[in-house]
Amino acid sequence: MKVERRVISVIVQNEHSVLARITSLFAARGYNIETLTVAPIPESDMSRLTIETKGNVRVIEQIIKQLHKLIPTYKVIEHEEMVEKEMVMMKFPINESLANIQALCEAYNGGIANVSSQHIITMVADEPKRVKHFIEAAQRFHPVEIVRGGVVAMERE
C-alpha cells in the first residue's frame, strides 16, 4: 500500500499529560510523527495539536481511530482541503548580504526578524513544500542555525 503524508488536527481536553498520551500512542503503535505543534485554544479548556504524519491508508485510518479513542480527545480532523503553513527561522552570519537575504525571505512570505552585531535572523511562514525550497535556496548564505516550527493547518471552508 502506498505511503502518503497526512496532516491531522486533534482537539483535546487541556489536562495533565494529554500530550504524553498522544505521543506515547504514536510510539507504542509504531506510527510516525514528522512534525507536531501544540497550543491552547483561546477562551476554552481545549488545546489543538497539529500532527504531520506518514503511513498507508490502513495506518492513517488506525491513527485517526486510535486518537479518537483516547478519553481526552474531543475531535480529530483529517485534513483534506486545508490551508497549511509552517514557520522557519534561520540565522546567518552578519557578513552575508542583508539585501539578498531580505529579498529571498520576501519571496517566501517572510523577512528579517532581527540583526545583531554577529548574526542576521530571518523568519518565513509558508506552505511546507515552499519552506523546504526556501531552506534549499538559503544555503548559499551559509546559515548557522535553522529552527522549523512544524505544520499548522486549517480547513479551507
Binding site: H16, S17, A20, R21, S24, A28, I71
Partner: peptide
C-alpha cells in the same frame, strides 16, 4: 505510575 500504566489501561489519573 501513570506514565507506566498509560499504555496498559483504558484511562488513568494522577489526582492533584
Amino acid at each position: 505510575a501513570t506514565g507506566i500504566s498509560r499504555s496498559c489501561t483504558k484511562h488513568n489519573y494522577l489526582v492533584r
